[in-house]
């Protein structure tokens, strides 16, 4: 019950936010928070629930961003039409990359994903058709509503919010399905999960593909809002790192964890950038580094799990005895 109250309060705030805080900076900030929340939630499916820490997720982000801009720049279509193409690209790539790499555990998987992302960035940087280092641009002047090119951040904010709601709904549905249960089991002990009939490789691959599809949508939305994509903004490894840290800070493997992380880190970055100007851009990453250290040292479950633990009464730690009495009771003559 309390959960639903919290949920409605957060949802109401999210809907009212750009009307309450209506300066262009605040609206743009809001749109960015929601956008990164989408990306981090998508990452959460494979990084949080499946425990496969992908550091190369930007490659799927790039699929979406390039597909959206490519639809306009190459075919004169609305960037909107690039979204399905981006999803297909991302899912296909996830299947190709996932089959060999998802067998790798822990850091090895992370490193393989970095390698894939960096390779892709270099390929795109050297491909004239994709604009090479300059990148691709979207429509400068909107031809019609479907170009989704707005001066104000307000329409983007609500568009992103709708997509975030869909992303969270998909994640929620997944966690309550057999697939979600299997993912959590595989994360804890792949060997045991398999012994109980969970097809580990297939389940992880599906999660990876689902995550890739949603990440590509985030990439497409990002490119639409900024009106262009280049190898750095669409395929730079730092975007992956940002997404990962947001999910980990908020709480990886929790539905609303990535949301909390994005709501903290995006404003932090934007505000520090606007205060310190170009010189301060690096400072954000110093902060990110510090956050990585703090998460690793103190709160592997993320901030949200800390809150949830405080909200609940302390769990009884003397369960061993209970188990004994329980088994005794059931076997008493």
């Amino acid at each position: 019950m309390r959960r639903w109250i919290w949920l409605s309060v957060v949802a109401a705030f999210a809907i009212a936010y750009p009307l309450l805080l209506s300066s262009p900076f605040q609206q743009r900030l809001g749109a960015l928070v929601v956008l990164y929340a989408i990306a981090a939630s998508a990452w959460n499916i494979v990084g949080g629930y499946a425990g496969q820490v992908s550091v190369g997720h930007v490659v799927f982000f790039g699929c979406g961003a390039y597909a959206a801009m490519g639809a306009y720049a190459k075919f004169g279509l609305s960037p909107l039409f690039g979204i399905p193409g981006g999803i297909v690209l991302a899912v296909g790539l996830a299947a190709i990359v996932g089959v060999p790499t998802l067998r790798l555990s822990g850091h090895y998987f992370s490193m393989a994903t970095i390698a894939v992302a960096e390779t892709m960035r270099l390929i795109v940087t050297n491909t004239e058709w994709l604009g090479a280092a300059v990148g691709l641009s979207g429509p400068t002047v909107p031809r019609n509503i479907f170009d989704l090119s707005f001066l104000s951040a307000l329409p983007y904010y609500y568009l992103f919010l709708a997509i975030l709601a869909i992303t969270l709904a998909i994640t929620w549905w997944m966690t309550n399905s057999r697939m979600g249960f299997y993912l959590r089991a595989i994360k804890d002990s792949e060997r045991a999960a398999r012994s109980l009939g969970a097809p580990a490789s297939r389940t992880k691959l599906y999660a990876y593909m689902l995550s890739a599809a949603l990440t590509s949508v985030a990439g497409a939305l990002y490119a639409m809002m900024f009106g262009f994509v280049d190898p750095e903004s669409g395929l730079g490894i730092l975007i992956s790192v940002k997404i990962l840290i947001m999910a980990a800070l908020g709480g990886a493997g929790l539905l609303f964890g990535p949301l909390v992380g994005a709501a903290i880190l995006v404003p932090l970055e934007e505000i520090s950038n606007s205060w310190l100007g170009g010189k301060g851009a690096g400072l954000t990453f110093v902060v990110y580094g510090a956050i990585i250290v703090l998460i690793a040292r103190f709160q592997p479950g993320g901030l949200l799990s800390l809150l949830m633990r405080r909200g609940k009464p302390k769990t009884d730690t003397s369960k061993t005895d209970t188990s004994k009495t329980d088994t005794e009771a059931s076997h008493a003559p």
Partner: peptide, 23 residues
Amino acid sequence: QTFEGMTVLENVMIGAFLRTPHR
């Protein structure tokens, strides 16, 4: 090989999911 992040019931559900896809 307990699934540490789950409840006792959820641990057993992983086994039960083999014969039914419904939660």
